[in-house]
Every structure is written in C-alpha cells, then in structure tokens.
Design a protein around this nucleic acid. Structure first.
Lengths: 229, 229
DNA sequence: ACCCGAATACTCCATTTCGAGTAATCCAAT
DNA sequence: ATTGGATTACTCGAAATGGAGTATTCGGGT
C-alpha cells in the first residue's frame, strides 16, 4: 500500500482548495482550472469525484451540506478536517523535499532506441528539438503575459520549473543527436552495422545468436545478456 | 481513447524483447531487469501479464506454444507479429520525436507551495537539494562502473538523460530556494505576511475574504480568482 | 416569446494498474 | 536426509483512471 491514504496528487489539490474555504466538487474543478493548476496536476471528472469520495471516506474532508436548486443535480459542499489539514501540510512537504523516481516517455524511448536505425533516431530527435523550441517559446510568451497582468512570480513557479526542465531536455537532445551523427557516442558503429544487416534481410534473431560473427569484436558485449551494475 | 491500442510503455518494452526472439512473460521480465530497463520503464507483475494478454488480444503478438514442466505453472511462449513490429517502430518513433505533457510530483508541489510558510519551503527545498546531489553521485558511480565493464554508451543513454534532468532540477531548486530566502521572488513578502497572520490565529478563509485589508495593496491580485492566460 | 449554444454539475463504467500473495522448485549448507 | 532461503512463475482483487455521455439551466440574440 502507498504511504498516503489517498495517493492521487489531485487529492492534494482538493485539500488545498478546501483549506481556503468549503466548496462543492465542481467548484473545486473550476477553481483549479481558473488558476491554471490543471497544467501541473492531472484533473478530470472521473478522478475528481472518486478522489473526493475517497478523501471523505478517510476522514480528511467532511460534508458540510447538500443542497439542490430546482431539478439540477444536488451539490454537496465539503470542508477540510483537522486530519485533512495535517495530511495536506505533510504531503506537500514531502513532495517538495523528496525526489521520487518518475518514468518519462523520453526515458523509455531512449532506453529502447537501439531498436531503430541510428539515422532515423537522429531525424526523430531533431524533430523533437523543434517541438521543444516551440513549447519553450509559448511558455515564455505566457510568462510575459502573466507579468503584464501583474501576476506575482510565486503563482507561476511551476511554469518556470517546466521551462527549466524543457530547456535541459532540449540541450540533452541536441547534444545526443550530434553525438550519434558523428558516431562519437560509444557503440554507434555496431548499432549502424546491425541495422544495415537487418535492411539487407538478416533477421534480428540471427544476428543476436552470433553477434561477434556478424558485427565484429566490438559486439562481444551483446553475446551475454549484459547485466547491469 | 488513447492513440495506441495498448498504451502502457511496458508494452513497448515487451514488443522490443519479442522483436529479438520469442519468450515467455517471465523471461521478458528477467531480460528487462537484467538490462536495467526497469529503471526507465515501470515493470511489475500485474501489469506485465495484463499487458501481454492485451497485446495478444490486439494481434500484436501471438502465442507460439505452451508447455508445462512437472507441476509448475505452464509457460506460454509468445512471438511478435508483423503488426507488432510495425506498432513497435511507430510507437518508439513517436516517443522519441514527440514531447508529451508529463505531470511530475515536484511540479505539483511547486504549484501549491504557497500553502506552506516560505521559511519551511526553503528548508524543504534545501533537503531536496541534498537528496538530489546524492542521487547524482550514485548515478555517476554506476556510470563509471559500466564504463569499466566496457558497456558502450548507447546502452546507458537513458541514465545520462536522467543525470541531465536531475542536474537541471538541482540547479532550479537551489536557485529558487535562494530567491525565496532573499525575497527576490515576486510575491514572497505577501506570502510571508500571510503565514505570519495564520500563525497568529487568523484563519485562511478570513484573510482571503479581504486580502487587501489584511495584507496590503500588493495582495489585490488575490481579491479576484486570478484567471490565467 | 422563443431558440440555441455555452456553462453547470455531475454519472458511469470499461480498462488499467498495483503489489501482496501463492505455490512449486532448486540449491546449498547443516 | 532435511531444512530453509532464493528463484521461478504467476494469480487475484481492490483501487484508480479516463473520458464519453447526460441532464439541466442560463444568457443573449431575434
């Protein structure tokens, strides 16, 4: 079981709203959206209502009243409990202080990239660089707009963070593409030769059955299932 | 519905294994672990078996044979299909070329950090910096070990990527902590004053009901639900 | 006075995910 | 010969997730 009674970060956002004042779920939804938090915390209806219910079941929030206007669906107003305030502060502290292993899609892609030919990987990484530059520029534009509106920096730190991460990713990707292009990246030559053989019709399985025979001495490392430190 | 028939990145890893040669699920599991891929792709039993079944249902892999030794559970050996090879290549290309919005826990934390007092946030960020430095050093040590073993760089790009991202996060966090400490970060003073009031027993709700009255002119922005660009 | 599109406020449920639990087998040391 | 710990190979169910679908009301134009 996870350390937290309710583990979806959306629950933290819910607690943060109710820490300001009591609200009904849909109001939590619009509050978070109007503050742009849905850029940083995944927010959809299914999760929101499930999370609210779960928070209540665990005593972190409590229903204050339910009212119904006309024949609209009833709205249940929730308030945070003392337990909820403590969970909120403790959880937020943990998020800020403790790095956790996150699985990004680029990391997954990089870890399997040997499955595509090097030249294509270079092309794909270049494509990614362009997309990243676009995203960076649109973040910068949004930031300037926020400044014009007099929005204090503290309300946009998360987008500054995203900017920093995207910039670092761009630098990494540009460098990697260059190092593959120039075959400076260790292993590139074996990699290239392997895909040339595949293009000529040799099967993957065949090559891996006798890597040194097909690819030369440098491919010795492929002969064993290379275990990792 | 998601673009991919099976959307868990683990499915890509499964396809990548079966692209080498037919295997049974548990062998896929050990192969991936021995190559350190479970550092980059979330891998647990429940998902593995579910994903394999789903891949088969969608015709991306096919069962080759099932055999049973003694009274052990039977092992089903799977092979990749032509459809599977295409899906593998297309999906991998997409992962490398197309950035996707990822929700990290630090980003969530930063977006809600105003809920804790500035001095505590600084302390928490310092704590994170220490943890990040530790992680960076252990990645570096593992990298050197890999080099000693003659492991070509191409098999560890994903950990170089992780290193680059962690380093960027560290730089961001160190800078942010410093900017809060010095109140250079826009909005820090209002933020600090607000938590002083709370410490004195004023309720959050009360302050937000009349921010300018409690916190001064700079808090005008809190008076409206600040919408975002 | 009426119509239409946007906004409000959810509900529903098929998948997916997680990881603890199970059960057999192998190996090595007592 | 036996015990016990690691390894092999999964099973299962509770919980989370995503997002399409539904029903009502409001507001602005004609």
């Amino acid at each position: 079981m996870s350390r937290r009674r309710v583990s979806n970060p959306l629950a933290l956002a819910v607690l943060s709203c109710l820490n300001e004042r009591p609200m009904h779920p849909y109001e939590i939804n619009t509050t978070l959206r109007s503050r742009g938090k849905e850029q940083s915390i995944k927010l959809n209806y299914g999760s929101l209502y499930a999370v609210v219910e779960s928070l209540q079941k665990h005593g972190l929030i409590t229903t204050l009243e339910t009212n119904r206007e006309g024949r609209r669906p009833e709205r249940t107003i929730y308030a945070i409990t003392q337990d909820g305030v403590e969970e909120f502060e403790d959880w937020l502290a943990e998020l800020l202080s403790t790095p956790t292993r996150e699985f990004t899609s680029l990391e997954a892609g990089l870890s399997l990239m040997a499955g595509l030919p090097p030249d294509e990987v270079v092309r794909l990484l270049d494509e990614r660089s362009d997309a990243l530059r676009l995203e960076l520029r649109s973040l910068e534009a949004a930031g300037e707009f926020g400044e014009e509106m007099g929005l204090p920096e503290i309300f946009v730190v998360e987008s500054h963070y995203r900017h920093a991460m995207l910039a670092a990713e761009l630098a990494f990707v540009v460098d990697l593409a260059q190092r593959i292009r120039s075959s400076e990246l260790g292993g590139t030559k074996v990699w290239r030769r392997m895909h040339e053989l595949i293009a000529q019709g040799t099967s993957f399985e065949e090559i891996l059955a006798d890597p040194v025979g097909h690819l030369g001495e440098e491919a010795r490392i492929l002969a064993s299932q290379q275990p990792r430190p």
